[in-house]
Amino acid sequence: MFAATFGDPTGPDGAARSALLWQFESAPSRVRQTAAERAAFEESLVADLRATTGRYPGDPDVAALVSRLSASPRFRELWALRSVSEHHSAPKVVEHPEVGDIALDSDVLTTQGSDLRLVVYTPRPGTGARSKLELLASIGTQKMTPSY
């Protein structure tokens, strides 16, 4: 369902599987955000990453991620704030090429004493998103428009 909704998350280096890389490396995205939603999402992601660096101060993978993200001026700006918190939720509108806009709420569920996180996307009530997701559950990633 993720691939059908957001697009194929696989890639040569797995970057599309990282919300941080996706957000700060300006990868093509079906997600549409207002300027305020984008700013809040980015602030929350960076504060969450800073919390992760506190839990794993010597982890070379975390250090490599921070180094890679530091190529982004926006990331550097937010990193300099030194905010620490956990990312919990964000509204999203997915611009889907086959079914149109899908309004979603995303919530991050965590387990106490563990680093396990589960991102749950739910259709925003009153938007028609539920029926679009049901259609995507049927068609998957196939294209419904003819290609000429």
Rank of each mutant, 00 (worst) to 15 (best):
A4C: 03
G7N: 02
G7F: 12
D8W: 05
D8A: 05
D8E: 03
P9W: 02
G11E: 12
G14N: 05
A15Q: 06
A15I: 00
S18P: 00
A19Y: 12
S26L: 07
S26P: 00
S26M: 01
R30T: 06
A36F: 12
E37W: 07
A40M: 05
A40G: 07
A40R: 08
F41T: 00
E42R: 11
E42Q: 15
E43A: 14
S44M: 04
S44D: 14
S44R: 04
V46R: 10
V46T: 15
V46P: 09
A47E: 03
D48F: 04
D48R: 02
D48W: 03
D48H: 08
L49S: 07
T53H: 01
R55F: 01
Y56A: 06
G58M: 06
V62I: 12
V62E: 08
A63S: 10
A63C: 07
A64I: 00
A64W: 07
V66Y: 08
V66G: 03
S67A: 13
R68Q: 11
L69C: 03
S72Y: 02
R76Q: 12
E77Y: 03
E77L: 04
L78D: 06
L81F: 04
L81T: 12
R82S: 10
V84G: 07
S85E: 10
S85K: 06
E86K: 01
E86L: 07
H88S: 14
H88E: 15
V93T: 15
V93M: 10
V94N: 06
H96N: 11
H96S: 07
P97S: 08
E98H: 07
E98A: 13
E98V: 11
G100L: 02
D101V: 00
D105T: 03
D105C: 00
D107L: 08
V108W: 03
V108Q: 11
Q112Y: 02
G113K: 11
D115C: 04
V119A: 01
V119K: 02
Y121W: 08
T122C: 02
T122S: 13
P123M: 07
R124D: 00
T127C: 03
G128N: 04
R130D: 12
S131L: 11
S131M: 12
K132G: 03
I139A: 04
M144E: 07
M144L: 14
P146N: 10
